[in-house]
Design a protein around this nucleic acid. Structure first.
Lengths: 218, 218
DNA sequence: GGCAGAAGCTGAGATAGCGTCAGATCGGTC
DNA sequence: GACCGATCTGACGCTATCTCAGCTTCTGCC
C-alpha cells in the first residue's frame, strides 16, 4: 500500500504498474515539485519547471501525475506518514507532573514537522478547506489521531471532575489542535513581533495541559 | 481613503482616478470575482470568466486590476473593515459573570463573518502564509486588534494572579485567536463528525474565558 | 553479439487563457 | 450635432497545458 492509501503498486496515468526506472523518474519529479514549492507559490510552479528540474520533459510528468496538485497530494500523504512519530511525544500527556514536559516536546515536534513541510501543508489545507475531498482525507488521516487523543484526554478530565461538563470533548480537541497547527503555520510571522519560538512552545504547552486535563501546571 | 488603506480616490492601472461609470464597472468586476470564488477554487477562476460574468471584457478587467489576486486583495480589505463590528462583542469580556455570554456572542459573530467571506479569507490566509506582504498586511489589520485585546486580557489576568506567569500574553492571545479563526474555517468539516456549531461556540467561548481570565466559568 | 519486445521518454501540435494596445464607443457639453 | 475626455473592447502575440504517435533504451533470449 502506498502512502496515498491506494492499494497495490504505484501506477501511471493509464493504470500500468511502474518498473524501477519509472519509479526513479517519478521520485525525481516529486522531489522537484517539493523544492519548487518551497521557492514560490503553487500558482507560479509550472509543469515545465518541474520537468526541467527533474531533468525530464513535461510529457513525462503527465505520464505519472494529472497535474502539480496530484504530485502535492502525494507529498502531503508522505508528510502524513510522519505524524505517528510526532504523536508519540503525546504519550506522557496525562494528568500529573509529566504532562508539561510531554506537551512541550509534542509542540516542538509538531512545529518541526510543519517547518519541514510548510509549503505542502499550506496547499493541503487550502485545498481541503476549499472542498477538495482528496486533500481533506489526507488531512484527516494526519490530524485525526491528534484530535482523538486530545478529545479522550478532555473526556477523562471531565470524568475526574477537573474539566467542565459544558465542554464538548471533540470540540475541545479540535480547538487545541487548532492552536498547535495554526501557531506552527504562523510562528514565523509572530517572531518579528517579539514572541520567540520558546514563548510559543511554552504557552501552547501550558494551554494544552490546562484545558485538556483541567489542572494548570505550575 | 479606500479600504485597502491607500490614500486618495480609486484609480485604474495607469493611476487615473475613476469616474462614476468606471466605479460601477469596477464594482461589478469585484462582485463577479467574489461570486466565482465561492463556486470554485482560485486556480479555476479565469479573468475571462470574471469579465463575462460582470458583462464586460477581459481588457476592462485589466484596466482596474493587475489580476484576480488584486481583486481578491481588495475584497479581503473590505472584509477586514467588518472586523471592528465583530470585535465590539468582545467589550464585555472581562473577569466576571458577563464574560461567558460576551465570549459566546463574539465567537458567533466571528464565525458568521467567516461564513460570509470564507473563500476570500482562505485565499488571504494562504497568500499571507506564503509570504505575500500585501495579504499579510490586510490580515494583520483584521486580526491585530483581536490579538491585542486577548493579550491585554491575559496580561491583566496575570497581574491579578489568576493566570500563570509562565504564559507569554502575546503568545496566549495568538493561541486563542488561532482557535477562533481555525474553527471558523473548519466548522463545516467538523459538523459531519457530530460536533454541532453550538458545541463549538460553547466550547470555544469557555476556553477563551478560562485561558484569558484564568477563572473558569461555571 | 544481435535481435525482439517491453518499458520509458519526448517532440510537436492543438487548445486556451494571459495581458496589451490601438482604436471604437459612450455620454455629457456647448 | 459636433466635440472631447472617459471608458470599453477586438484582436493579437505569447506562454503553458495536455496529448499522442513515434523514438530511444533496456532486458532477456538465442
Amino acid at each position: 500500500m502506498t502512502s496515498t492509501g491506494q492499494a497495490g503498486p504505484v501506477v501511471d496515468q493509464n493504470g500500468r504498474p511502474l518498473g524501477p526506472r519509472a519509479l526513479r523518474t517519478r521520485s525525481r519529479l516529486l522531489e522537484a515539485t517539493r523544492r519548487l514549492l518551497d521557492e514560490r507559490p503553487l500558482r507560479d510552479v509550472a509543469v515545465v519547471d518541474i520537468a526541467r528540474r527533474a531533468g525530464t520533459s513535461p510529457a513525462t510528468f503527465y505520464q505519472y501525475f494529472k497535474g502539480p496538485e496530484e504530485a502535492i497530494l502525494e507529498l502531503a500523504a508522505r508528510a502524513a506518514d510522519e505524524m505517528p512519530g510526532v504523536l508519540e511525544e503525546l504519550r506522557g500527556l496525562a494528568p500529573g507532573p509529566g504532562a508539561l514536559p510531554a506537551a512541550r516536546a509534542f509542540v516542538r515536534a509538531f512545529i518541526a514537522h510543519w517547518d519541514r513541510h510548510r509549503a505542502v501543508l499550506l496547499v493541503r489545507n487550502l485545498a481541503a478547506e476549499s472542498g477538495d475531498r482528496r486533500f481533506a482525507r489526507v488531512r484527516r488521516r494526519a490530524l485525526g489521531p491528534l484530535l482523538e487523543r486530545l478529545a479522550a484526554l478532555t473526556a477523562e478530565g471531565q470524568r475526574s471532575g477537573n474539566v467542565s461538563r459544558h465542554l464538548n470533548p471533540h470540540a475541545g480537541g479540535a480547538a487545541l489542535a487548532s492552536i498547535v497547527e495554526r501557531l506552527s503555520a504562523y510562528h514565523r510571522e509572530l517572531e518579528p513581533t517579539g514572541v520567540s519560538l520558546e514563548d510559543l512552545v511554552e504557552t501552547t504547552a501550558r494551554i494544552l495541559v490546562q484545558v485538556a486535563t483541567g489542572t494548570p501546571p505550575d
